[in-house]
Each structure stands twice: as structure tokens, then as C-alpha cells.
Design a protein around this nucleic acid. Structure first.
Length: 534
RNA sequence: GGGCCUGUAGCUUAGUCAGGUAGAGCGACGGACUCUUAAUCCGUCGGUCGCGGGUUCGAACCCCGUCAGGCCCGCCA
């Protein structure tokens, strides 16, 4: 059973109606690590729907959180906004400076600046959550009841956090962070509470009051989270391992949730996604691949497959090179499998059955829409990469794939080609996939050539010198150079790849060679022969 | 210091909750297609299940210990 189905089954035991939640703070650029948060929730939702449950899938945008510091991608001018809520401060301009002018004239906030592109990416990936913005929720009174309970039960909450997390809270600790005289949540000391007012003194020595029913502050994270569960009615939430550890915010949250009269949600902890060889993904270090950037390179199904095929508690190492190629290949293998036939095999072991079912589950989770059927494209990722690198126009590519005026390529195939072209142009294309002709071959490559191989190379030169310069004749010339010596064409291909590309295997040579000048190709072989002669 | 998660073939992993012959995919290797060679098909190789102990007729799985990596215990999600 797919991991999402396992969670869905646990939910089914609890009741027929569920609110599945995810949440992210838009404090900087989103990356595909954030995608795991959303997709994990999305996949549970999908599995729960398949199980016949009534599901509401939500994405809480934590834009009531304060700006923690001036991140490397921000201008120093942001230092005056430290501690201010990211939903109420200006978005950065091109230089990373706060665009105060624009913000005051109805421009977007810091939080929306980072959130909006992510929402666009989500749409392409087929994720359609109900968006709940935290700051607005506080301001519109959604938190009123839970905030009152929290403040009324301050001592109980303090006891839970100190006992469960094992840390000591300050004497003056209070479960409400008021906004100070400048609009910051930092350095404010609570001096009293009389519902609905919390009295405070800030770091500038100013005293004031905060109405907890008007969003003049917020609950600290460890209370804010279970408070959201309570007022929204969250029954299931996937969260990162930072929250999942014992003594972490889920541990304290599940107890605090009871104070609000709400059963804690079904948890699912997921691991980080790291960039291969570069450690955890992190917005501040610039060590990121954004969801939009990833979507420019691969179709959304493949991004979904990345998340779907790994169990949540497994760390994912991601890179935009061969990992993506392999993932794309994996996807193509999956869609071309005949699961019904595999499942109906007589000697099917239990293990095998589970594996097939997991594969079906992962594939279903990779669909953009639940109703999508799969399109078998008949062209592999690698083949498309070859065509995109060798053909001079799209028309020639479609022609090569057998399309014509009466038989047009599908929209998704056209999209794939566009992405492939971007990928080839980008820095992400792995060397292994890049097609390059070696004009001046390295002598080491030929040191081990056998007498047979040398004979073939020599014959190949003659064949290529004399043949017509078209795909068919070139295609025949290579195997013929072996056949004329009664040798396997396989050897001729090996020789040809080593000669022209410096490797043992590769894409079909004729379509590549035909793009080069005949004299240049012959010259390459001559160069090789002169090396091997000496 | 205390706690949680992860460790299975060269790589990605299933199996751990309910102990019963370690199972896939990729790669590698070999062969076939008498040849559209990054293709397809067939086959082969490959595992002291991190390590040590214990329980058991039987342990990847349960228990104890230990090593390695990650995370939490700071209003850093």
C-alpha cells in the first residue's frame, strides 16, 4: 500500500470528514523542499478522497510571523523591519530594498512577494489547496476564542512546554506576543492581562496594550500551531522533521491542543530534501532549486513522482542532472507498464504484489489531475534530448518522430520539447547527456584497439569517404565496415562511438554525422588512424 | 547531556508495525535481435540487512548496547 493510503486508512478509522493541513512561512524564496510539505499533504488528501472520505485540503500561509533577520538576499534597509510581521511589511525591489512606496500604494507585501510564484507553481503541479492566511485570520478574529483560552490558561501552557520540551521559560513568559510601539514582535515584555487586553512594555520603554481579538499581536509558534488546529478543525497534518522530534512543537502542540478542546491531528513527519553534494536546501545560502525553475526543466508529473515514490521519512537527495534523467526514465517505465497483466500473473508472490501496488500508487499520485489518463508518448527523455541537440528545427524533430500535417504531436509532447530545449541550454544538463564531437581524439582512447578494430576503422574511413552524405548511407556505412570483415556490427559501433565521441555508446550516429561536413568526419578518422599508426 | 529519525547489492530502495527461504528497479557484465545502438528482448553477477550481544526452533524485523549521519530540546517551521 502506498504511504499516502496508509495515512488515509488511519484517518478512515477516525471518521468520514477530514481537514488536512499544510503550512509554510514565506520568509524567502520557496524551494522544492517546500514542495514536499505541500505535496505530502496533497497526496494524503488524494488518498483520503479515494478512500471515500470527505476532505478539505488547506495551506496555511504563516504571514503573521516576524522577519527574523536581514537575510543575505535583502538590503540592509530591512533591519528596521526585523520583528515585524512579514504580511505587513513591503516586498523587496530588484535590489533587495524594501519597496515602501509601492507597498503604501496597494503593492504586495513581503510575504506575498515570495508566496505568489509558489502558488503559480502549485497550480501547474495540480495542487489546489484552500489558502488560509494567518495574519488576516488574526485580524478578522478567527483566533479570538483560542487566544482567550491560551491567555486564560497561561500557567498550564507554560507547564506543558517546560515539561515536554525540557526547557525553562522566563518568569515573565506569556502566551501572547504583542506588537510594540513600532510594530515589532521582538523585545516586548507582557506586564498584565485582562481580556481582551494584554499590557506590555517594549524595548524603547514605551508601554501599551494589545487587543488579542484584533490581531494586535499573535500567539507564539508553539501555541499558534495547535490554536490553528482547533479553530480550523485540522484532523491531519504533514510536517517537517524539525517539528516531529520528541520535545519539538508537535509534542507540545498535541497537549496544548487538548486545552482548546481539540484532538491533535494525525501526524506525518517528512524528511528534508537536500541538493546533492551541497547539503540541505536553504533559502539564505542560495542553495536552492525553486519549484518554478524545476518546472522549466521537467514536466510536473515528474516532480510529483519524486515525492510520491519516496516514503516521507526518507531523505531525498536531488540534483538537476542525472537524477532528473533517471526520474524521467522511471516515469516512462511506469506509464508503459501493464499493471493489470502483472497482477493477474499466476505465480505472484505477496511481496511482488505489494511492489506492483506501490508502483500503481506512486503513479497515481504523480498524475496532475485525478482523472487524467496517461499518455504514452513513445519518445524517451534521452531520445528527445538527442533530437533537440541535433535537429536544427522543431519541424525536423516532429518529422523524425513520424508526425506530419495529419498527425500532430500532442500538447504535452510539445511542452516536453520546450522544457528539453531549456534544459539543454541551462547549466543543468549533465555532461553525460551532452552530445559533442571530438575533433582531436586522445591517444589513450585508441591504445587498446585490437587489430580487428583498426581494420574496421580503416574500412569505415573508406566507406564514409565514398558514401552519399545522407542518413541512410551513413547509417549503412558503419555496420558495413564490420560486415566486410565478417565481424559483428556491434564492434563497428563501439569503434565509431570511441572515435567520434570518445565513449563506448551513444545516440544514433547517422543523424548526428549528417549534420557535420563529410570532410570533417573523414578528417577525424584520419586523425585517429595517424595516432594508432604511430 | 536528554530525546526522535535514518543506516539493506555499485546506486535508489521494498520488507521492520503483526519474527518464517532478503525482493525489486537502475547500473555493470554476457547474449539475442544478421541492426533505426542512449532502443528492445533474454540471461548472469552482485547482500556478514552499520557493528556487537541477547530472546527465540527461527531475527533485517523484538530487547540491550554501540558506531555513523540528520533533527529537536533557543519565539530560527
Amino acid at each position: 500500500m502506498h504511504w499516502a493510503d496508509v495515512t488515509a486508512q488511519a484517518l478512515a478509522h477516525k471518521g468520514p470528514k477530514h481537514i488536512i493541513s499544510t503550512g509554510i512561512t514565506p520568509s524567502g524564496e520557496f524551494h522544492i523542499g517546500h514542495l514536499r510539505e505541500i505535496l505530502t499533504g496533497d497526496m494524503i488528501s488524494r488518498a483520503a478522497k479515494n478512500a471515500g472520505l470527505d476532505v478539505d485540503f488547506i495551506f496555511i500561509v504563516d504571514d503573521a510571523d516576524p522577519l527574523r533577520k536581514v537575510y543575505p538576499f535583502l538590503h540592509e534597509e530591512y533591519s528596521k523591519f526585523i520583528g515585524h510581521q512579514i504580511g505587513s511589511i513591503p516586498a523587496p525591489d530588484k535590489e533587495g530594498k524594501p519597496d515602501i512606496n509601492s507597498f503604501e500604494n496597494g503593492g504586495i507585501s513581503y510575504a506575498d512577494y515570495f508566496l505568489n510564484p509558489f502558488l503559480e507553481a502549485l497550480e501547474k503541479i495540480g495542487v489546489k489547496p484552500r489558502i488560509i492566511k494567518n495574519l488576516n485570520s488574526y485580524q478578522s478574529g478567527k483566533f479570538n476564542d483560542v487566544s482567550k483560552i491560551a491567555c486564560d490558561k497561561a500557567e498550564e501552557i507554560k507547564e506543558i512546554i517546560e515539561r515536554v520540551s525540557g526547557r525553562e521559560l522566563p518568569e515573565k513568559w506569556f502566551p501572547w506576543s504583542p506588537l510594540d510601539s513600532k510594530g515589532s514582535l521582538e523585545g516586548v515584555e507582557v506586564t498584565g492581562y485582562d481580556f481582551p487586553l494584554v499590557y506590555w512594555k517594549d524595548s524603547h520603554g514605551v508601554e501599551g496594550e494589545s487587543d488579542i481579538t484584533k490581531g494586535e499581536g499573535k500567539l507564539p509558534w508553539r501555541i499558534d500551531w495547535p490554536a490553528k488546529w482547533a479553530w480550523i478543525g485540522v484532523t491531519c497534518e504533514a510536517f517537517g522533521k524539525d517539528h516531529g522530534a520528541a520535545g519539538g512543537s508537535y509534542s507540545t502542540g498535541r497537549e496544548i491542543s487538548q486545552l482548546f478542546g481539540h484532538a491533535p491531528p494525525q501526524p506525518l513527519t517528512y524528511e528534508w530534501i537536500s541538493l546533492k553534494g551541497k547539503g540541505a536546501m536553504s533559502s539564505s545560502s542560495g542553495n536552492t532549486i525553486g519549484p518554478m525553475e524545476a518546472l522549466e526543466l521537467v514536466p510536473p508529473e515528474i516532480l510529483r513522482l519524486l515525492i510520491a515514490q519516496s516514503k516521507p521519512n526518507k531523505a531525498i537527495e536531488f540534483d538537476t542532472g542525472m537524477s532528473l534523467v533517471n526520474l524521467a526514465d522511471e516515469y516512462e517505465r511506469l506509464i508503459s507498464r501493464n499493471f493489470q497483466e502483472e497482477l493477474s500473473a499466476d505465480d505472484l508472490s505477496r511481496r511482488k504484489r505489494v511492489q506492483i501496488e506501490d508502483a500503481i500508487g506512486a503513479l497515481n499520485m504523480s498524475k496532475i489531475s485525478i482523472d487524467d489518463s496517461f499518455e504514452t508518448s513513445n519518445v524517451s527523455f534521452r531520445h528527445l534530448s538527442l533530437l533537440a541537440q541535433t535537429k536544427s528545427s522543431d519541424e525536423l524533430i516532429w518529422e523524425s518522430l513520424g508526425y506530419n500535417e495529419n498527425n500532430n504531436p500532442s500538447k504535452s509532447l510539445i511542452d516536453r520539447l520546450e522544457r528539453m530545449k531549456l534544459w539543454i541550454k541551462s547549466k543543468h544538463l549533465p555532461e553525460e547527456m551532452r552530445i559533442s564531437i571530438i575533433d582531436n581524439p586522445q591517444s589513450e582512447t585508441f591504445a587498446e584497439f585490437s587489430a580487428d578494430e583498426l581494420k574496421i576503422l580503416s574500412t569505415m574511413k573508406k566507406e564514409l569517404t565514398n558514401c552519399q552524405w545522407n542518413v541512410d548511407d551513413i547509417g549503412n556505412a558503419i555496420p558495413n565496415s564490420a560486415k566486410s570483415h565478417n565481424l559483428s556490427p556491434r564492434i563497428a559501433y563501439r569503434v565509431a562511438y570511441l572515435t567520434f565521441m570518445g565513449r563506448e555508446r551513444g545516440p544514433r550516429l547517422a543523424p548526428i554525422l549528417v549534420e557535420l561536413e563529410q570532410s570533417r568526419v573523414v578528417k577525424i578518422i584520419e586523425n585517429c588512424l595517424s595516432i594508432t599508426d604511430s
